[in-house]
């Protein structure tokens, strides 16, 4: 699905990531952990073409990201669902319209039943007509997840998805991500919350990667 080979990324004269090789196979579940500022978000952005590596190669669905034009990148993003900690919506559209947005921009019609099912899956059925500003932190994250998966993407990237929500809500969100993985989706979650990782490993076989000293390494048994 996504493959990084000796990837480096520099910004402002300094190297943020160095010599990173990583393979996200179809149906795999990965955690990406490390201290704040280690480069987790940067690595996530490299995975969906929001940033280009300064060295090395990144292949997404078999294509080198450097060889993709802007339309190709847009097509990649339709196959990669992204959830950010600081999730952004179109504030003038209600929750259901925001969740349908990937379908809207790709010219696909949203079938009512699918949307209702998805809204029910993330527990937002009764918030469908609310505006994003009216949602709580947990509701925003669940709406973001629904938006990320409405196109049935092959890969779901979640960057600190539980950062702004309480424990109970983060467990609920995690269960949704595990369900997605069981449906065959590749999942990569960036988090510094080790308890979240431990809770997940009870349900699914997950690889834990740690970014340290600009490099990615497989985390040890302490997790």
């Amino acid at each position: 699905m996504i493959e990084l080979e000796n990837v480096a990324y520099s910004y402002g004269g300094g190297e943020l990531l160095s010599d990173i090789s990583l393979k996200l196979a179809a149906g795999s579940f990965h955690f990406l952990t490390g201290p704040s500022g280690a480069g987790k978000t940067t690595l996530m952005k490299l995975c969906y073409g929001a940033l280009l590596p300064t060295a090395g190669h990144i292949r997404v669905f078999g294509a080198d990201v450097r060889e993709l034009d802007r339309d190709d990148i847009a097509m990649v993003r339709r196959r990669v669902g992204v959830v950010h900690q600081d999730v952004k919506f179109l504030d003038h559209l209600d929750v259901s319209e925001n969740i349908k947005l990937p379908l809207t921009v790709s010219g696909r019609s949203s079938e009512g039943a699918d949307l209702d099912e998805l809204m029910s899956w993330v527990g937002l059925t009764n918030r469908a007509n609310a505006l994003p500003a009216e949602l709580s932190g947990g509701e925003r994250q669940r709406a973001a997840l629904a938006r990320a998966v409405i196109m049935s993407p092959d890969v779901v990237l979640a960057d600190e998805p539980t950062g702004n929500i309480d424990w109970e809500m983060s467990q609920r969100l995690l269960r949704l991500l595990i369900e997605l993985n069981k449906m065959g989706k590749t999942v990569l979650i960036a988090t510094h919350d080790l308890s979240l990782i431990r809770a997940t490993k009870a349900h699914v076989q997950a690889r834990v990667l740690r970014i340290a000293n600009r490099r990615v390494q497989l985390a040890g048994a302490d997790l």
């Binding site: 929001a50 802007r70 339309d71 847009a74 097509m75 993003r77 339709r78 992204v82 952004k88 919506f89 179109l90 947005l101 990937p102 921009v105 790709s106 938006r147 196109m151």
Partner: peptide, 13 residues
């Protein structure tokens, strides 16, 4: 922000 969201969800230029 609208443009950033649209690009994130796969809108073409």
């Amino acid at each position: 922000q609208v443009i950033a969201v649209l690009r994130l969800v796969g809108a073409t230029d």
